[in-house]
């Protein structure tokens, strides 16, 4: 089945009517290879985004992650223009720019300006590549907003492999990465190779972004990389806990979003993003209410 045909399938009205027999629905859902691929790729991406997202939030590099995804857009569009699968283009562009952004270091004052300038240029390139590609604009739309229902078995194994590499990198960097994230001066004095950790970490983010784009697209990457981690930051104490909760939120919203899209013919990425957003708002409201209650108690 071509990507276009799958796209059609996903957007041609309700795929299935809601029944109260959820188990039977689930079995029917998983009867389709493209749904199975989506659930598996979504799981891998959610785990990676939850773990990497913790560090993105901790290091305050959300803008860099955002920029990486947009630079990746140029790569993906370029890949489509020359007839390669978008993931390769994403990987090439994201990894290169990730290494450069990491090399700029944490402290550089004009860092965000430099990233922004490169980001604008990359988006311009993306526009050029799209016009070079004579096919329909469906490809561009699926890069921008994600096309998890279009993950082929080949894409899936590539996604799983890249996901495992990402997790292995985070595991290998774990302590120095935490150290440089909270306390760069002391880490440097203790001989942690700060610059190297920063470069490898941004390349890890690049890998995570490249595979997350398939699920939620370039524009909505924050919903997987930042929202779950931001939720975890608010409710957790320790790094380990925060990563677990981040993964749980990312995984929950991805799978639930996929399941909902089975019944309603709207973009999967919309459901995924909305779920994590609602959880974020709920957590904010809950902590606000709790603070108010504590203050009321203190006054009384």
């Amino acid at each position: 089945m071509s990507v276009a045909a799958r796209h059609l399938l996903a957007s041609a009205g309700p795929v299935s009517n809601f029944s109260w027999n959820l188990l039977a629905d689930l079995r029917q859902m998983l009867g389709y290879a493209f749904m199975r691929n989506a659930f598996e790729a979504g799981a891998m991406v959610a785990v990676v985004a939850g773990v990497v997202g913790y560090f993105v939030v901790l290091r305050r590099t959300a803008f860099a992650a955002h920029a990486l995804s947009h630079i990746g857009f140029a790569g993906a569009a370029g890949a489509v223009a020359v007839g390669v699968i978008p993931l390769w283009g994403l990987l090439a562009f994201c990894l290169t720019s990730g290494a450069v952004i990491g090399g700029l270091g944490q402290r550089l004052r004009e860092r965000d300006t430099v990233i922004g300038i490169v980001l604008a240029f990359a988006l311009g390139l993306g526009a050029l590549f799209i016009s070079l590609y004579s096919g329909s604009s469906n490809e561009a739309i699926s890069i921008l907003f994600g096309e998890i229902l279009g993950v082929s078995t080949g894409d899936l194994s590539l996604t799983l492999a890249i996901g495992l590499i990402t997790l292995a990198l985070v595991a290998a960097l774990y302590r120095p990465l935490l150290f440089t994230s909270v306390d760069e001066d002391v880490a440097e004095a203790r001989r942690v190779p700060v610059r190297m950790v920063s470069v490898v970490f941004m390349m890890t983010v690049a890998l995570a972004v490249a595979i997350s784009v398939q699920v939620v697209g370039v524009l909505l990457i924050f919903g997987l990389m930042v929202t779950p981690a931001a939720i975890a930051e608010r409710v957790c104490r320790s790094p380990g806990q925060a990563m677990l909760v981040g993964v749980a939120v990312a995984l929950g919203s991805t799978w639930l979003g996929l399941a909902i899209s089975w019944y309603f013919a709207y973009p999967v990425s919309f459901f995924i993003i909305s779920i994590s957003f609602v959880v974020y708002v709920a957590v904010r409201v809950a902590s606000w209410a709790k603070e108010r209650a504590v203050r009321a108690m203190a006054v009384a």
């Binding site: 120095p176 203790r190 001989r191």
Partner: peptide, 10 residues
């Protein structure tokens, strides 16, 4: 981290 933050891995 002061104890072993400079070591690789966790």
């Amino acid at each position: 981290l002061g104890l072993d933050g400079h070591r690789w891995g966790f």
